[in-house]
Design a binder for these strands. Structure first.
Length: 269
DNA sequence: ATGGTAGCACGGCTA
């Protein structure tokens, strides 16, 4: 079963590029981020006419996530638990039942967190974007602890807005104080991994130069000035089924591309 | 230090 994650940066602008990728890559299941659309305005036909079931969790103008799957999507939930006042659409879950295993899937769009605002003691300013990012990650950790108790294959994939290691950026020094790379962010990401998750891409491909995002500006893609921030994380049940994991870098060279490219994994289920 | 690009939606925020 081929599963994938793709930050499309706006479904209204990305229809042709998304259709091209679906037809070429033929994922069995995919999570999308930054659909930047309400559920009502989402062009469902584009997905459904290709044989996918579709569940969206949208929001007007910003954010928004979705899951599409050839298999039925069961037990769908929307929103990250832990804050009733959080109106940002960044989390969706569903279960698919493969021939030999069921798989719980979380699609996520983790907050960017910039600009980083710190008080005189160096703590994130309450109400600021960086505090929101760290608070969201703490809520994700709490939800992950619940999901780990299910004792079934689990995948959490999406745009994490986290550069895990220096080798995951072409110019790590340029990101040192950025919300995507500063130590507090990477510590929070490592706390997720330390609950027992495997970074599917790094399980198969070591070394620098592998990125999932390149800025639209300054010919960043042509210079391979990128960062690896879209991740597929697996619990041990799912990691034991991992057969392959790759980044579809070529998608960035297509017509009217997203600033992210898809990442996918093949699982034996 | 600034400006460079893109999406949504049509002004300004987000990235």
């Amino acid at each position: 079963m081929k599963i994938a994650s793709f930050n499309i940066n706006g479904i209204k602008a990305r229809g042709p590029a998304l259709a091209r990728w679906l037809d070429e890559a033929q994922p069995d299941l995919a999570v999308l981020q930054e659909i930047k659309s309400t559920d009502e305005a989402f062009p469902r036909d584009l997905i459904e006419e290709r044989g996918y079931n579709l569940e969206t969790h949208g929001q007007k103008g910003f954010n928004g996530v979705a899951i599409l799957s050839k298999l039925p999507l069961e037990d769908v939930t929307r929103g990250l638990p832990g804050d009733e006042d959080d109106t940002q659409a960044r989390w969706i879950e569903a279960t698919v039942s493969g021939p030999s295993h069921a798989l719980r899937v979380c699609g996520l769009y983790l907050p960017n967190g910039n600009p980083v605002e710190l008080d005189t003691a160096g703590q994130p300013v309450s109400g600021g974007k960086y505090a929101y990012k760290l608070g969201w990650m703490a809520r994700m950790e709490a939800r992950l602890r619940e999901l780990m108790a299910l004792e079934m294959p689990l995948v959490l994939m999406g745009d994490y807005n986290i550069i895990p290691q220096p080798e995951d950026a072409a110019r790590p020094e340029a990101w040192r104080e950025d919300a995507l790379f500063r130590l507090q962010s990477r510590d929070a990401f490592r706390r997720l991994l330390n609950l027992g998750l495997t970074d599917a891409f790094r399980a198969r491909t070591p070394g620098p130069g592998h990125y999932t995002f390149w800025d639209y500006q300054a010919r960043a893609f042509e210079r391979n000035d990128g960062i690896r921030i879209d991740h597929i994380l697996l619990n041990a049940y799912a990691a034991d089924l991992l057969q392959d994991c790759r980044i579809d870098t070529d998608v960035r060279a297509g017509e009217k591309p997203s600033d992210h490219v898809p990442i996918w994994a093949e699982l034996a289920l």
